[in-house]
Design a protein around this nucleic acid. Sequence first.
DNA 1: CTGTTCGTACAGTAAATTCTGTACAAAGTT
DNA 2: AACTTTGTACAGAATTTACTGTACGAACAG
Lengths: 188, 188
Amino acid sequence: MERIEGLTLEQEQAIQKARKRIIEAIGNNMDLYGITQSTGHLYGLLFFQNKPMTLDEMGQAMEMSKTSMSTAVRTLVDLKMVNKVWEKGSRKDLYEVELDWFQTFADFFSLKWRKASEMNLHALRKSKSEMLELSAKHAEDEDFQQQVQADLAKIDEAIRYYSWLNRLIETFESGDIFKLVPKDAPPK
Amino acid sequence: MERIEGLTLEQEQAIQKARKRIIEAIGNNMDLYGITQSTGHLYGLLFFQNKPMTLDEMGQAMEMSKTSMSTAVRTLVDLKMVNKVWEKGSRKDLYEVELDWFQTFADFFSLKWRKASEMNLHALRKSKSEMLELSAKHAEDEDFQQQVQADLAKIDEAIRYYSWLNRLIETFESGDIFKLVPKDAPPK
DNA sequence: CTGTTCGTACAGTAAATTCTGTACAAAGTT
DNA sequence: AACTTTGTACAGAATTTACTGTACGAACAG
């Protein structure tokens, strides 16, 4: 933790205590995003920084090597949770959190869930066409047909699900989700 | 992989090939649900089983120890991806996948994301009230006020986000999400 | 009551992941 | 040009996680 300018030690500690609770809550739940606890912790730290941070500053604050900071911050940038920013005069790379968490959430789904969804759909479609071919080829064989039809039914339902998931993700990407579920709760 | 009854070896292998592609696609993307690849693979295996399976059968099919099957299947049951079923006469526990993937998706969010959301909201609210107290206590100190107000603004925005996330998850739990994003794409 | 059979707790091992320090390429400074 | 500074690739160490085999309690059978 860095000292904050112009505050007494007592004030400083009171703020840090309140921050720490949040940073740790964030760090603990970041596994949902598939990132490690320490990377989550770094995210929390950056969240309360009111100016962009360098790798050296992160290393000092986290008491970890610069190498670790480099890899951790890269995963956060890849997930679009953290942005690299430019500041004239500085040769060092600077990073700050993306403060729009709605956007962060949408980007995450767009990136990860979309990718998984596409891959599964691809496999499902390919296997479906193989099964259909098999079904035609052995049209007479009852035992075989029964087996293939059972598999096909499951595959079709899975395709239906992933198609839906794709449409859901699309609402995240387009921002339409906020028309369906508004950012602010309507007054009851 | 188990033999399927009443089919020739050729038929058997053709089906298994088509299944394998899907099972592996599923296993590879299951990290999104925070489960290991091997647990994901087990899920894929169960998906194509047309009858409930015992731990011993799983172990044989996956070429893994029964202990591993026990723990793997437990995580799947905890996530409600797999159900324990009863069959009269059998002393062994039997398991089969939940075939309704829409439900599986909803349950997962309900379980994991809801939990994270609640924990973060709790931390945020507690720290917010602490900060408000601090702000009142040091009302004169300008440097301090500036710092606290900056933190409070971030906290409020985070609370706004998590409140939204809770409402989104609620639509999953209630099934209202399918009114907003229908299971089947409307004909264009 | 004495056998079995079944599932899982637990401890130890194997494997994978995370973290560190060194080394070096790229870019900037003098 | 030579000399710094900065970020990251890479290899090894440290830590964590996944997997296995043994052991044992619970439930059932005879």
